[in-house]
Nucleic acid binder design. Sequence first.
DNA 1: TTATTTAACATACACACCGTATGTCAAAAC
DNA 2: GTTTTGACATACGGTGTGTATGTTAAATAA
Lengths: 200, 200
Amino acid sequence: MAAKKRAETMAENREKLIAAARKAFARKGFAAASMDELTAEAGLTRGALYHNFGDKRGLLAAVVNRIDGEMAARARAIGARRDDPWEGLLAEAEAYIEMALEPEVQRIVLLDGPAFLGDPSQWPSQNQCLVATQELVERLVASGFLKPVDPEAAARLLSGTALNAALWIAASEKPAEILPKAVEAFRVLATGLLAPAGAK
Amino acid sequence: MAAKKRAETMAENREKLIAAARKAFARKGFAAASMDELTAEAGLTRGALYHNFGDKRGLLAAVVNRIDGEMAARARAIGARRDDPWEGLLAEAEAYIEMALEPEVQRIVLLDGPAFLGDPSQWPSQNQCLVATQELVERLVASGFLKPVDPEAAARLLSGTALNAALWIAASEKPAEILPKAVEAFRVLATGLLAPAGAK
DNA sequence: TTATTTAACATACACACCGTATGTCAAAAC
DNA sequence: GTTTTGACATACGGTGTGTATGTTAAATAA
């Protein structure tokens, strides 16, 4: 065996570093995580890190991008299971809320990400999610199911509300008790978008 | 003149440090701000800082507490100007949205605060904004004007939605164009809380 | 196959920063 | 007037990031 191609081992090393960074960032937070420890746990040194990611923020960006992509895929899959588009939208948002129970998501994506990388809506991965829900809102508005709101604004506030609900849950001592209340409140708020019955 | 009392100069120094920290944190972010520069600009040294605030996080906590208090006071004053409690609530939330346009608020309270101090609702300042809106929601629910939602959940998501709208606006290139769309979408979402007409 | 180049990564170093331990001096207490 | 307190300055150690330099194995060319 062996006969490792060069690009192959490089990809493996990137994988190792991202995996180690996920654990370290989730446990210690981005600022307190040491790059020496990170790379040591991955069986490498800081040299590999700076060569692959440029600097510490570059590594964070890669990790955030990875997790965010996974979240989007999961949420989309859940939303797609519903026949009714509106219920699909709600299910997708609720999936996001529940994902924030995971410490990795909470610490890295919801807290350190915005603080060190800037506005999430400018992230490549987040954009996909936003664009998707925005298109869905556009369709629902065009069909008269929703009030004639600005689709971009509605999509952003919806996802932002879900995000905040997630943060609340994640920070509480008894997430299991909070979760249903948060989901219920989210649904109530979301109904504000619905067109009055019979408006067509 | 002169004859400064001891406690007096100490209070002045705390004031100077908090003021310098506000500027530095807002411009560089908490992590990148240097305590040496901070204290030098205030005409003091790190000795004063550690004596007064314990450590770097202690200083951030003091700054956040200060700004948070100012925000609560401003929002409450604006909300109190309305006769209708529901309109007062909306006005208060919109005031928050606009306040988040200020870099100090956005950077320190909305980004670095949660990242380095933890969940806002557990801050010593107890996030006065949240407490205030929660009480208002409780009254409106009791009077039957709103659906019987959980007041804490409703208040959390309302303020969270306002917060997110503010972040969106602040990050955009043309805030002036976005602001009305964000406010409108916020109002639409908020109407989801209203009890059906004629429900008493 | 052998020589040469490339580049992925390791090693070594310089600099900045936080936190603490110690020192100093003016104001308060007696 | 002497002593004591404590608010703040100074000095030091440890840690961590980023960069400059070195090394070696894979890729390329002769």
